[in-house]
Write a protein that binds this DNA or RNA. Structure first.
Lengths: 246, 246
DNA sequence: TATAGTCAATTTGTATGACAAATGCCCCGA
DNA sequence: TCGGGGCATTTGTCATACAAATTGACTATA
């Protein structure tokens, strides 16, 4: 897993016991190992099998319930809910879905989301960005320029897109960063073979930056859309290649 | 509070103890009664003041932590996080923000989100909808046509927009329904005086329905955008009116 | 036989008390 | 002045007990 210090919160959830349990159960559900409609074993049994106390297990269940994955009812048990109820935009749920090489159609959905969100965000940023927000974007861009390793590039890339969302001055839009994060993460996973040319999208980013600097919403929208379309195309080339291998 | 039986889950969270506690603390935070950076009283004290056990309180804190509102650390306490970390798209967080007559700029942000999401969703639905999904949308439309009370209208309206999101075949888009729900809810709250003409947007909905039926993405996009722009304009008229009163 | 009502078993919900672990701070010593 | 050790504070985890809700079976009754 990548280390995006300032994005991935140090998240005590990672270190804590209940965090592990939540992660484990969450993945079981999202990956389909336990299917919607099924009820989990009773808490005492489940706690024992996971080697934690009922307290820790229950905290995990509560959070999963808040994410819409399960519903606990007295006297019945914890039933896995239908996908329709899942909090699909939750960072954890997205991560769980992307964890194990997501199916192509899910990647397409991620891309569709980006194509809707990010061009609109770039346009809004071009309209409303403050000087400080522009500086944030530029800093991220410079970091991409300077990146020597794939890891450094990835972090700077994420920071760039986060900064654009931030510049929209709309925190609701910024909360969609989790989608971008999962999307980019998956992208780098799926196209890990050609690590060499990871800088190919730099010109696209430059155009977005300049459009936002000059406060040209339509130019920013187009530049961002082109960037996403380009990376999507590159991803599909990789798909075909790996399918041929198989 | 409206009753949208099939949207608002019966949500044991409403009835349960920890649910009340979560709601109470969540509102305190989102409304700004306790500000980011502050630390809550220690669990024992807080539990006592809310008249619940530490167990129930901790379950509430865990969920609030999952929503990004607070962060608990051993030996320190539960610190309220900066708005940047909040899970802004979470249904509860949105509801808490809209609970107490949200400021104009937040309403604008909701509208901006709708203007980005829903036209794109309508276009996608026009491209990919199945016959069954179209039927869902039509059913909702008929219910709007037949609605005699504001309550019936509101429920059908929500159902219409949910059906459109569903017809995109992209569950990520559908998860943004919480935004539409909060937005419409707030809209009806703010424009509650002229209840009489609640049906004025029916023609807009008709255009969206027909465009999706005929699989015309661009027409669907435009119709949806026009609908949102129209309701936004109507909302702003109301704002001015109520400002004049004050 | 059908039906309503009661009871018992099961499972989650809540409370309580205890201790482990992490953090921050003061104080002491070099 | 700086660094480390220990102490107080607070959350993290565990174990146990009982309350509350749901289910399903059983029974009495028409």
């Amino acid at each position: 897993m990548g280390e995006h210090e300032q994005f991935m919160r140090k998240s005590n959830a990672v270190r804590s016991l209940y965090g592990h349990v939540m992660h484990e159960l969450g993945q079981r559900i999202v990956s389909g190992k336990v299917k919607p409609g099924e009820v989990l074993p009773r808490e005492e049994t489940l706690a024992e099998s996971l080697d934690v106390s009922r307290t820790a297990l229950r905290e995990a269940l509560k959070v999963l319930s808040a994410k819409g994955l399960i519903e606990s009812r007295t006297g019945v048990g914890a039933r896995v809910l239908d996908e329709r109820h899942w909090n699909q935009l939750d960072a954890d749920v997205l991560a769980w879905r992307c964890a194990s090489m997501p199916p192509d159609d899910f990647v397409d959905k991620l891309v569709e989301m980006r194509e809707i969100i990010e061009p609109a965000a770039a346009a809004a940023a071009a309209r409303r960005r403050t000087a400080a927000q522009l500086a944030e974007i530029e800093t991220a861009y410079r970091a991409m320029e300077a990146a020597q390793t794939l890891e450094a590039w990835t972090e700077a890339d994420l920071q760039f897109h986060d900064a654009v969302l931030h510049a929209t001055c709309n925190e609701l839009l910024q909360s969609l960063f989790s989608v971008v994060e999962s999307s980019l993460g998956t992208f780098f996973t799926l196209s890990a073979r050609n690590v060499s040319d990871f800088r190919y999208s730099l010109p696209h980013h430059h155009k977005v930056l300049e459009s936002i600097r000059r406060k040209q919403p339509e130019a920013a929208r187009k530049a961002m859309l082109a960037m996403i379309a380009d990376s999507h195309a590159s991803l599909q080339r990789n798909r075909k290649r790996s399918r041929r291998k198989a």
